[in-house]
């Protein structure tokens, strides 16, 4: 994420319009939001994510759940079917809309779980020196392994369902979070105020949750977004290999159907639209996290 940071920084060309207001009066959160809202790429990305979230929530109102067979098989995009139809005559637009719902649910649930585990272990490892060796080795070892084949094995063993996908993706996504949170928390635990908290007799739990956790919170925000965007790709990958929930639609499953039925070589619309949906969500999430990082960093805030 960091190598790309200057994109958003240099794209946010708006001069310091609020120069008359003394920035010192603002809380850090408001200051970050002000800087963020001046970044066009960040705002557009945030808007795209919000629109997709609305589509996900309102899916039942927007389209009928695609099921059964239709008469118009493999029709290219038209007024009746803006995204065309698949090999069984089902509307691709409806599939993409319902897919948004499942893909986003899985991405957010998996990233939430991964963040819970990742942050807990990361803070614990940074604070408790005795655990650090074990956790760090575990993280290094897990990050070195090819994750997708491992996810495939576990998902196949448990049997495909939405819950399976959430658990499997979370199970293999937390090491990345732990790595980032731990390194950040390590620098915090060395600060004098943590010693002060210990000196006045604070419990370990209190120090970790009230003093270390808030200090790593910004990193957690970035991690949530990036883990979720990676979860979108993992979910799509597993569904594409046939490990998606058989009862529901996801973007990866639309591609899987196109691949299995051979529609892939006839009907570009069966694969193009879900691909665009995946790309839009992942790019937006990446740009939002870059813009947030820039907005939070006084050096790139351009004040």
């Amino acid at each position: 994420m960091t190598p790309a940071a200057p994109v958003a920084a240099s794209a946010g060309t708006t001069p310091a319009a609020g120069g008359l207001l003394a920035p010192a009066d603002l809380t850090p959160g408001r200051r970050t939001w002000r800087a963020f809202s001046r970044n066009p790429l960040g705002m557009i990305s945030l808007a795209i994510i919000l629109v997709m979230a609305v589509v996900a929530i309102a899916a039942p109102l927007l389209a009928k759940f695609p099921s059964g067979y239709g008469r118009d098989i493999l029709m290219p995009p038209s007024a009746a079917h803006p995204f065309g139809t698949d090999d069984l005559g089902r509307d691709v637009l409806a599939q993409v809309i319902w897919g948004t719902r499942i893909s986003m649910i899985i991405a957010f649930a998996a990233s939430f779980l991964a963040i819970l585990i990742g942050v807990a272990l990361g803070v614990l490892a940074a604070y408790a020196k005795r655990l650090d060796g074990i956790v760090s080795t575990l993280v290094d070892v897990s990050l070195a392994l090819p994750v997708l084949p491992l996810m495939i094995l576990v998902a196949a063993l448990i049997g495909p369902s939405v819950t399976t996908l959430v658990v499997v993706i979370a199970l293999f996504s937390w090491p990345e979070v732990t790595r980032i949170v731990r390194s950040q928390a390590l620098s915090v635990t060395r600060l004098p105020y943590v010693d002060a908290a210990r000196t006045i007799g604070g419990s370990h739990f209190w120090i970790m949750t009230r003093h270390i956790l808030p200090a790593v919170a910004p990193i957690i925000v970035v991690s949530v977004v990036l883990t979720a965007s990676r979860a979108v790709l993992s979910e799509a990958g597993l569904s594409f290999l046939g490990l998606g929930d058989p009862e529901s639609w996801s973007w990866g499953k639309i591609l899987y159907n196109a691949q299995r039925s051979g529609a892939l070589t006839i009907a570009w619309w069966c694969t193009l639209f879900p691909s665009i949906a995946i790309l839009l969500l992942v790019v937006s999430a990446t740009l939002v996290s870059i813009a947030y990082n820039d907005a939070r960093n006084p050096k790139t805030r351009e004040n």
């Binding site: 994109v7 591609l255 196109a258």
Partner: peptide, 14 residues
């Protein structure tokens, strides 16, 4: 670069 890192491998392949 940002777009490239966000691409879904089967999408590129297809």
């Amino acid at each position: 670069g940002v777009i490239g890192q966000s691409l879904f491998v089967p999408s590129i392949g297809i």
